[in-house]
Amino acid sequence: MLLALLILILAFLLNLFLPWWSIAIPGLMFGYQFKKNGGASFGWGFLALFLLWGGQALYIHFANAGILSTRIAEMLGVGSPYLVILITGILGGLVSGVATLTGSLFSSLSKAK
């Protein structure tokens, strides 16, 4: 839980200034540090960015009265703006999940040393 929260906060801060792929950094860092098993690392890492990106998207969707998300949904042919929000969350989640997993796997490496 704490793992996800830390990833979320740091990713939010980095993403403000750095390109989007900076969201992988907190997963790598905290995944390494927390040394959780593979499944849990991926899960928490995924959850953090799913909530962050999905949440940001959901906020923008409502604050913009759905104007843009509806157009993007039509452009992508996905039918609903909520699917656009979901995709946003999943994309962020995937990168962060794999990053956290990678971090944790490297930590098991150093443990074994």
Binding site: W20, Q56, I60, H61, I72, T88, L91
Partner: peptide, 29 residues
């Protein structure tokens, strides 16, 4: 891959990034 354009599909990670992707073009006020 998420930073690369495939055919007419924009680089997905870059494009969906809520801070700098298309979401940033939503007028909020």
């Amino acid at each position: 891959s998420l930073n690369t354009k495939f055919g007419s599909i924009p680089p997905l990670g870059k494009f969906f990034d809520p801070d700098a992707g298309f979401w940033a073009n939503a007028e909020l006020s």
